[in-house]
Amino acid sequence: MRNVKWLKSVIVAIILLLPLTALARGIDPLVSTDWLQKNLGNAKVVIVDVRKVEDYKAGHIPGAVNVFYGSWAIKKGDLLNELPPIDDLADVIGSAGIGKDSLVVIVGKTDKVPDQFDMTRVAWTLKYLGVPNVAILNGGQNQWVKENKPLSQDMVKAKAKSFKASITDKLYVDKAYVLDKLGKATIIDTRAPAFYEGKEKLAFVPKLGRIKGAVNLPVGQLYTPEGLYKDKAALAALAGKAAGNDLNKELLLYCDTGKTCTSWAFIMTEMLGYKDVKVYDGSSMEWLADPSAPAEP
């Protein structure tokens, strides 16, 4: 009973402190369609539409530049969703008109839950390259269209900027790093429970199972049935249950390819105030292909 009381107090304290974390940024990590509509003329705001060129040309948020998701994450060897070379990424960012002081809003489609993660992987990658003020449009393009907000078919050509990457150390980590942290950091498997429990796997993942000692925080829990993010209190409670409430504890998040886990990584860091969150880019595709990498069950 005493423990429950203590846990409740900690959660309440976290929720009360949440606005302070938001104030540290130039933009809220999740922006609403209304906010974006009001800020369409804001010169500091760069709207980045990560959908396919064909979809973008069919209709996009006025002023949004198109930088297709495939520019941000590529296949390397057998691994999906890996980082392109940094100089290529810097070109992509600069040619989209993004500077380090830009307020970037990422827009993607949200037809299905997995679509959400294009946006968060791009947001995490921008943070990695030194762009701090990145936001996700809550509900993405679908929400904008659903609310009958204006659309444009003009091809927006951004005013290119020279962008020099400043890598934010360790937002993406490799297998050796995770191996070294086994038993020390909290490892969070963000896949659905059946995948975490070793009952199911995707075809391209070499075998069933999870990283030894990992806890489960499924990405499906982030969203409402309408495809919007749940409110802060609900997200804080979910995260706290899996990751604990020590905001300074090192957390290593992974999934199948290093893409979907960026959703919790982004929310935990940018909204909930966790200070040491890293994404294991190789994720299950790499870990479970290595017989010497400790796995369970």
Binding site: V53, E54, K57, N66, F68, G70, S71, I74, K75, M155
Partner: peptide, 18 residues
Amino acid sequence: YTGEYGGEPDVHYQKGML
């Protein structure tokens, strides 16, 4: 061209060209 075969998308597609 779009990168969906598994490589990187063509730079012209990245620039919005079809």
